[in-house]
Design a protein around this nucleic acid. Sequence first.
DNA 1: CCTCACTGCGTATGATCTACGCTAATTAGC
DNA 2: GCTAATTAGCGTAGATCATACGCAGTGAGG
Lengths: 254, 254
Amino acid sequence: MVETSEQPDLPPDVALMWGLRDVTRRGPKPSLAVEDIVRAAIELADAEGLAAVSMARVAERLGNSTMALYRHVKNKDELLVLMSDAALERPEPLPEGADWRTGLTFWTAGVLAAVRRHRWYSQLPITGPPAGPNNLAWLDSALGALKDTGLSEESKLGVVMGLMTYVQGEIRLSMELAEGSAGNPDAFSRYGATLARVVDPRQLPALAEVLASGVFDEVVPFDEADEADFDFGLQLFLDGLAGFIERTCPPDAG
Amino acid sequence: MVETSEQPDLPPDVALMWGLRDVTRRGPKPSLAVEDIVRAAIELADAEGLAAVSMARVAERLGNSTMALYRHVKNKDELLVLMSDAALERPEPLPEGADWRTGLTFWTAGVLAAVRRHRWYSQLPITGPPAGPNNLAWLDSALGALKDTGLSEESKLGVVMGLMTYVQGEIRLSMELAEGSAGNPDAFSRYGATLARVVDPRQLPALAEVLASGVFDEVVPFDEADEADFDFGLQLFLDGLAGFIERTCPPDAG
DNA sequence: CCTCACTGCGTATGATCTACGCTAATTAGC
DNA sequence: GCTAATTAGCGTAGATCATACGCAGTGAGG
């Protein structure tokens, strides 16, 4: 394990993500860097899914032995943490002079786009609050979208956490479902039929009514339906936020 | 594997969750039922976490051999699917005569309470749209809360999916963070210090401002802060929904 | 030049999931 | 009741995995 004695009070994985290591070290030059390991792991996950990411396969891809990785990474969990920050990359800057609503909409679309480039992202465990450079850059970007609202810092943070919660739910629901439907293409076209077979109108009346309305019979591609639903919910949230901002910081009371 | 020839067009795991199996079968009486397996797996996960749920440990808990389980469950993934429905149990019925807002608030609290009884829930993979009896009962309950709004069935479904997305995000963020902070108690009290160490005000100005405001210095128990943030976001969503309902179905235009 | 921290790696251990095939139990049909 | 078909439970074994441990060689500090 590489020591990070320069930042003794930082959690070791955080120090790793920020590239804070000793500059002068004895012994042989490392022929491997954490960044290489993380990059190889991400490529492997992109190509063959997260389940294919084993220490052995990552090492093989780097032309090293399995155990060599453990000099740079405490264990596999730490590797996953590093992957979760590296996969996000940096956010594109918000459009200049945009109001908070377009800013947050832009931000949300950006997060989803970034995450969708790595279909395994939703399967990563969440081990702590955002602490890596990319994660914090996204957090900063969302907070920046709210800078002209006049909200308190605490409120801004609350708003952003609410939005992150909603986005996180979308990531999990839509991405894992998309993964599942990839391996099982007609699970979705059959969904209406499955429900019809199983739903008893006396026990689940409201659901039976939705079924009877035929919403599930339309054959809409999964992605489109999903995006429409996401946008709908996002607009509701932003509508509510607009009300909150007006109530808290009336524009003419400045 | 138990055949489910009565419902040949249902996915096998769905049939299992609904208990649709052959009534008359040849061969020895099964000494084991899927329900037993699922219950044992849930007890094990409750006691020792999801990682402790291996086919061997579940079988051991039942006094059977490992391979005996495979007569009742196709593979471990299917067992996880069954666990994810069984863990939810049935929703409590909505309070009689409640309006949609109290109904949905009640529903949301119920989902979170049900899920929090099994701390491993958030780590389960999502393999398909809700199809088990408990999942569908919850879905029905949420739809039922909207029955007096006059919204179209399609809109109701959209609203519920938006709410489920937000709740799903909360489940994932708060539960996995809670798990993480259990094994690492002061990771949260250190969070402010970690950020202070790592955030450069020139690179992350908005985040730096939040940090400077001292929000992260307050020592609030994780659960309380989390619940407050969740409620705040939920209210924003419901505020937005109120506007949508008024716009779509004005009460005096009925 | 010597010391010794450090890198890479071989070996080994203990889990894990699960394919396969055997034996014994039970029932359907006669 | 007899026979054949079917099924439950399980033992064995293979493949894959994470990772503890210790050794050999490297190269910087003294």
